[in-house]
Structures are given as structure tokens and as C-alpha cells.
């Protein structure tokens, strides 16, 4: 069966997730992230919202170590990120991108990118988990619809047994039905009683989606944290940009 990494490296008294302190990433005209302090707990779904260019994608790339900070520190479960083994870290904190990126080959081959000796039975289980039936395993992944591809990408990420998944607007290129499937999957996996509980940091442009998913919300603006809290409270926040991001009153 697919291994579960939740519980790995856990120790008493340290933060069970990400801790960002004074995180800065330089950009061309202005910093992409400008001194971020943020705690991202492992449990539930944290939705990151904010206008284009507010630093949402940069934040996610940092957490997967596809990018590095220019200043400040990030710790994962109490260990500074630059002291963790980058390849192991990426399996513990997976990432799903905005555009579905299926590799050439069958769905099974795609899943085996993540877990080399995955047997067909476990692969079929993974497909079922993302609402694809087992007949998909032999299909060419690059020929699937956008929604199907994105579910294959998600299954591929789950195959690494992550404790947390970073999702960068994973439904923005999908039709509403496909988006709903993926949202439901995230909600299901985020439940503590799920067979393999996964925490999510989910970037979204869509206030409706934010309200459906978020256990907590972080709103970014121009590389800074504008607000964090629950969606209801933020709907009446003093800053209009925050209210807009969560779909609150104008």
C-alpha cells in the first residue's frame, strides 16, 4: 500500500508544520516576499489568497524548496529547511502545480515516477482515491483531459506519501465539475480520520473555493501578509483587499 509519511520526524514541543520568520525573496522591481512571518500548521487546509503578483506562488515554491530565501528562515517540523535532505523533504511536502504536468507515458508510468516499485494494485488504489477507475492505468497520460491529468498529478504526489501537499491554484485551468472533484478529494484527505491525513496549503484566486475549503486563510499583498484568520472574520476585515480576497462585503 502507499506509505504514509505523516508522523515522520515528529517530536514533542516543536511546531508541527512550517514556521516562516522574516522571509524575503528578491524580485526584479520589488521583493517577491518582503519579510514574511507565518505559521502553517500541518492539519487541515490553509488557503493562501491575494492578488496576482502578491507572492503566493513564490511562497509555495519556497516550501517545496524549488526556490530559496534571500533572507530569513523557514523551518519544517522544527528543522531549518536548508538542513533537511531536499529530496526527502519534497516527498514529505509534495506540490501540485497550476498547469497539469503529466509526463510522457502511461498513467502507471507517471505514478511510478513517484514510487518506483509501485505494484498495479496500489496504483489502482491511488487511481480510485482520485476518482479515476483502474482502466486509466494503461492510458497515455498526455492524452487525458485537463481534469483527468490534474487528478493523475495529484495521485502521483500522493504516491510519495506526503504529510502535506502544496497546491498552486490546481483547479484554475479546469472546468467546474473537475474542480469540484479535486476540492472534494482535498477535503476528504484533510480530515483527521482519513486513511492518510494530509495537510494542505492551497493557493486560490476564487473566493467561493476559499470558503468551501479553508480551515484558515492567509491573505498576501505585494509580498507581505495582509491578514490571517478564518474566512468569516476576514470577510469584515478593515482592509478592502483582504475583504475582496475572501469574497466579503465591499
Amino acid at each position: 500500500m502507499v506509505p504514509s509519511a505523516s508522523g515522520l520526524g515528529q517530536s514533542v514541543g516543536v511546531s508541527d508544520g512550517f514556521e516562516l520568520r522574516g522571509v524575503r525573496v528578491e524580485g526584479v522591481a520589488r521583493p517577491r516576499l518582503d519579510g514574511i512571518d507565518l505559521d502553517l500548521p500541518l492539519e487541515g487546509i490553509t488557503v493562501v489568497a491575494g492578488a496576482s503578483g502578491s507572492g503566493k506562488s513564490t511562497l509555495l515554491r519556497l516550501l517545496n524548496r524549488l526556490d530559496v530565501v534571500d533572507a530569513g528562515t523557514i523551518t519544517w517540523r522544527g528543522t531549518p529547511l536548508d538542513e533537511t535532505d531536499v529530496l526527502l523533504h519534497r516527498r514529505e511536502v509534495g506540490m501540485v502545480f497550476q498547469r497539469p504536468t503529466a509526463a510522457p507515458g502511461t498513467v502507471l508510468e507517471n505514478l511510478r515516477l513517484a514510487a518506483m516499485d509501485l505494484d498495479e494494485e496500489s496504483a489502482a488504489d491511488l487511481c480510485l482515491l482520485v476518482d479515476l477507475d483502474a482502466s486509466f492505468l494503461d492510458r497515455d497520460a498526455t492524452e487525458l483531459s485537463g481534469g483527468e491529468k490534474q487528478r493523475v498529478c495529484l495521485a502521483r504526489t500522493i504516491a510519495t506519501g506526503p504529510a502535506m501537499i502544496l497546491a498552486d491554484e490546481p483547479t484554475s485551468s479546469l472546468d467546474p465539475a473537475a474542480a469540484e472533484t479535486i476540492e472534494n478529494l482535498a477535503l476528504r484527505l484533510a480530515r483527521p480520520d482519513s486513511p492518510m491525513p494530509v495537510g494542505w496549503v492551497w493557493v486560490s484566486h476564487d473566493p467561493g473555493q476559499l470558503r468551501r475549503l479553508a480551515d484558515r486563510v492567509v491573505v498576501l499583498g505585494e509580498g507581505r501578509v495582509l491578514a490571517e484568520g478564518n474566512a468569516l472574520d476576514l470577510a469584515s476585515h478593515g482592509d478592502a483587499d483582504v475583504r475582496r480576497a475572501v469574497g466579503g462585503e465591499r
Binding site: L87, R90, A103
Partner: peptide, 20 residues
């Protein structure tokens, strides 16, 4: 780029991610 970074994000080494 997208595909290479997707492979990296799965924990593949840069060598494996670029091999194809």
C-alpha cells in the same frame, strides 16, 4: 520547465528529472 520541476517536486534528483 513545468515537467522538470514537477519531477523535482516528486523528490527526483536533478539528474533523474532531466534524464528523459
Amino acid at each position: 520547465r513545468d515537467l522538470i520541476e514537477a519531477r523535482l517536486a516528486l523528490g527526483l534528483s536533478s539528474q533523474d528529472a532531466f534524464a528523459p
